[in-house]
Design a binder for these strands. Structure first.
Ligand code: SF4
Ligand code: SF4
Lengths: 134, 134
DNA sequence: GTAACTCGGACTCTATTGGTCGTATATCAA
DNA sequence: TTGATATACGACCAATAGAGTCCGAGTTAC
């Protein structure tokens, strides 16, 4: 409950690793997988998502790999999470999927307080940048 | 991901309802279940947890039900959640289950940043009291 | 051409969650 | 005393989401 997915954790570890490399040399998925003991296939897909979102670039083929494209000080953690999960972490279903997603919606008395908590959490992820976790 | 359980939502709705009653009359689980369209059995168990934690008192038998025992301004939302789930919402497994719970622990580079986010979230739940959601 | 990469979907397995059921127990009022 | 109305509690089932695997591609350097 209220737990980050492993995908996100792996993604954060990975992008942090990529960001920490000085110079423009590429890092392969296997390399990261080995260094941290993260399942290769899982990590690979996470990296693909990050690349698709434009946070890192991918280079296929021999001597390929990944590299950071953005300024670590500019990219916020919430953007990384969104790139990986396709959505922002939401505390209650109705906050992301709309009124029809919960059949208690119209009598629900806790929506607005929860919205405040939600805003709080979002801010926490938005104000923290990649540079801060390197 | 990072979602509150239905149990917690139902519990918050229920305790808010109980708290909103003026006078000391009891509220039955069925009553709340009907008013909000919450599954009876599920709600019942949540109320039992709240009662076991001392946040509300239970009275069995005919004309029984539940009543609030604490000052709404004193009880924080985090206490309610803890009563229901038996634990505090934690963003990463290692933060609750210790180093051995994650086999990436010793090479994990994101523990300390996540701890900050965690503190943030905890504060959000701790600073919000029952009185604020009534 | 081939080795070393990324790409992307389909797939399985497992844990968590949401919800149900059955039964026991307490209380009150007729 | 009996029966209706409550909570108490554990076992159970069903649905969903999560973690992890597999495989058959495309790409590029050498
Ligand atoms: S409506 Fe209330 S109960 Fe339903 S998801 Fe939104 S917050 Fe939770
Ligand atoms: S060690 Fe790192 S990866 Fe493992 S649970 Fe804690 S934060 Fe997540």
């Amino acid at each position: 409950m209220v737990r980050l997915s492993k995908r996100v954790e792996y993604g954060l570890i990975a992008i942090r690793d990529i960001a920490s490399r000085t110079g423009g040399d590429l890092v392969t998925a296997k390399e990261i997988s080995d260094r941290y003991g993260i399942p290769y296939d899982l990590l690979a897909k996470v990296l693909q998502r990050l690349s698709k979102a434009g946070l890192i670039t991918s280079h296929q083929g021999v001597r390929g790999g990944y590299a950071l494209t953005v300024d670590p000080r500019q990219v916020q953690v919430s953007a990384i999470i969104h790139a990986i999960e396709g959505t922002t972490p939401v505390i209650a279903q109705c906050l992301s999927d709309g009124p029809t997603s919960c059949d208690v919606f119209n009598v629900c008395t806790i929506k607005s307080p929860l919205t405040k908590v939600q805003a709080n959490i979002e801010r926490a992820f938005r104000t923290m940048t990649l540079a801060e976790i390197v």
